[in-house]
Amino acid sequence: MESKEKIENELRQLTPGLPLQQQATFQLPNGYFEQLPTQLLVAAKTAQEKKARIVQLQSNQWKFLAAAAVTMGIVFFSYYYFTATEGDDAINQWAKQEINKVPAEHIVEYVDNTHAVTQVRAAGQLESNDLALLVQDIPQEEIQRLLNDLPATEMP
């Protein structure tokens, strides 16, 4: 600490009317400074324990939240996977049954014609007369037979 004399000299020069280093004696609870070290040690340790409990609780909460997120992810993924597979299987089953009913040569013929139309469409040059040109070589009774053979059933 700086010397008392130095501080008093400074004060004397600065404010001659001010009392020098006088301190009022405030009222204090009995034995306050005797008890304070123990009181503060207890308070510090209690605060530390509380802090540790909060940190522990927070870390457990993170673990719980992480576990919950993983579980929810698994449940959601499983639900999506199984329901999507069931739907696909039903559709595939129906499609197989329907295709089996159609004679093979009709399918080939249909695919050939569709492919031709798609090619023309892809080129972006399909005009009203082009369709007539595409079907002009197919006999009328062939077309009628194809239409009669195709089942008009609805999807399940």
Partner: peptide, 24 residues
């Protein structure tokens, strides 16, 4: 602290917080 906050109860709280921070 006492001369800053005046009340003994407040001073006691501030002193306590100060030494808890010192401990930590």
């Amino acid at each position: 602290v006492k001369r800053m906050v005046v009340s003994h109860e407040d001073a006691n709280d501030v002193v306590q917080n100060t030494f808890i921070r010192v401990w930590n």
